[in-house]
Structures are given as structure tokens and as C-alpha cells.
């Protein structure tokens, strides 16, 4: 007979020498190695998180570099356009453009008194010879070469932002 069949008999009534030992204690719900493994897992998660953060910072470093390059290109383009604009605003250019448009200089000033509507001054038709010092000289040359000016003015000026390696 197997020991099991003796199992329900009370200890004291068994005649064989077989003895039952007390039942084993409950097995653990968690294996003993769970705690160190959990710690290791936490460590691994921490390291992964740190690495992910660091990689993101690195990516942003690249993005910053690209944006700075783009900013530099736009700034360079702006400066060229600004120089072209300054050239157009000079009085020489203005005189030339005005005379090309058929305008003449008028040194006679007239004032309107806004309160009373009265016109004070010398309103005279001009013949174009009153201010001989403004003449229709040739348009002054700019300091920006023509092909550069054309490039800067075009909408798609400049290459795509590249990485600045200098």
C-alpha cells in the first residue's frame, strides 16, 4: 500500500514504520531571486531612460546646428538685400529715378493752414530750370554685383540648410 493511502489515518493508528513528515511549508509565491532581478531590471530601465534622454539631446544638437545654419543664410541674404535697398534710397538714385519719370524739382514751398484752410506761400508752375543742381545723371553703380543681387532677390535663393562644418 502506498503511503498515501495511509494518509487519512491518524498518526497514532498506523502500524507500519512509515511515518509522515509534516507537510512542507507553503512554497513562496515569488522565487527568492525575484528581488535582485527586480533591482537589476530597475537599473536597466533607468539606464535606458537616461540613454534615451541623452540621445534626444544629441538629436536636438543637430537640429540646433541646422537651424543656426539656416539663420546664418537668411541673415546673409538679408544683408545683401539691405545693401541693395540702401543703394536705392540715396538722393542720387532718387534724382535719377525722378527725372526718368519726368518729374522736375520745385523749390517753391506752399503751406496750408489746416485750421483755416488758407494757403500761404509761393505757388508757381515750374519749368524745370529752377534747381539746376539736380540733374539727371546716370544711375549710380551699386556695390553689390548684379548677379548676386539677382540671386538674393529671387525667392528660392540659397541652398537647403546644410551642416556647417567650419
Amino acid at each position: 500500500m502506498s503511503a498515501l493511502e495511509h494518509a487519512d489515518l491518524p498518526l497514532t493508528t498506523r502500524r507500519s514504520a512509515v511515518r509522515m513528515l509534516p507537510p512542507p511549508p507553503q512554497t513562496r509565491t515569488w522565487p527568492r531571486s525575484a528581488f535582485p532581478l527586480m533591482i537589476l531590471a530597475l537599473l536597466a530601465i533607468g539606464m535606458v531612460g537616461h540613454l534615451a534622454l541623452q540621445t534626444r539631446i544629441q538629436e536636438q544638437g543637430f537640429e540646433i546646428g541646422a537651424l543656426q545654419t539656416q539663420a546664418g543664410q537668411l541673415s546673409a541674404r538679408q544683408s545683401v538685400l539691405q545693401a541693395m535697398l540702401d543703394q536705392q534710397a540715396t538722393p542720387q538714385q532718387l534724382a535719377y529715378a525722378a527725372s526718368q519719370a519726368g518729374m522736375v524739382a520745385n523749390p517753391y514751398s506752399t503751406f496750408v493752414n489746416l485750421a483755416t484752410g488758407q494757403i500761404v506761400g509761393l505757388a508757381k508752375p515750374v519749368t524745370g530750370t529752377e534747381v539746376p543742381i539736380i540733374s539727371a545723371a546716370a544711375a549710380p553703380a551699386g556695390t553689390i554685383p548684379a548677379h548676386v543681387a539677382a540671386e538674393a532677390a529671387s525667392a528660392q535663393a540659397g541652398p537647403e540648410p546644410t551642416q556647417d562644418l567650419a
Binding site: A3, A17, V18, R19, M20, L21, P23, P24
Partner: peptide, 9 residues
């Protein structure tokens, strides 16, 4: 069921 160890005396 075999977990229970039995010892013969």
C-alpha cells in the same frame, strides 16, 4: 504528489 518525501524507518 511526489513532493512529499517519505522515509522508511
Amino acid at each position: 504528489r511526489t513532493r512529499t518525501i517519505v522515509r522508511a524507518e
